[in-house]
Amino acid sequence: MMEFSEIFFKYKDLISIAVYGTAIMLIIIGLYGVLLKKHLVKIAIGLSIMDSGINLLFVAVGYIQNGTAPIFSPGHEGDVAKMVDPVPQALVLTAIVIGFAVTALALSLIIRLYKHHHTANIDQINSLKW
């Protein structure tokens, strides 16, 4: 089995397309769900998928080939030249937790709407329609 670094140079384009492509496809699939689905829980699922895609895109931008995690563990203090970009990771870390809290708030609103209107379909919730 080859080292990861050798594989990286050989299939650089393929890996790049795989990682960026996955992130962009997740964003697009989530957006499709948000725009075209009628059920409120489905819309929340679409938002959650978009969130995942954006997080993956951020971490992928910060990656450096043959990099190590930005942690100065004992015996590896000199590896600073190989470390990946820590800033996107720090941003994504808090974004995941905030995303969970915002999803929970959205779902609680959906539960309240269902109790009031007895439906979760956005076409049937039409009390404010003129």
Binding site: F8, K12, V19, I24, I28, Y32, Y63, I64, Q65, D85
Partner: peptide, 21 residues
């Protein structure tokens, strides 16, 4: 969605994956 996907893809084509920045 197609326009958005095209522009996202072309933007990230300009940012090389794994480069040391």
């Amino acid at each position: 969605i197609a326009v958005l996907g095209f522009y996202l893809a072309s933007t990230f084509k300009a940012i090389p994956f794994g480069a040391n920045r």
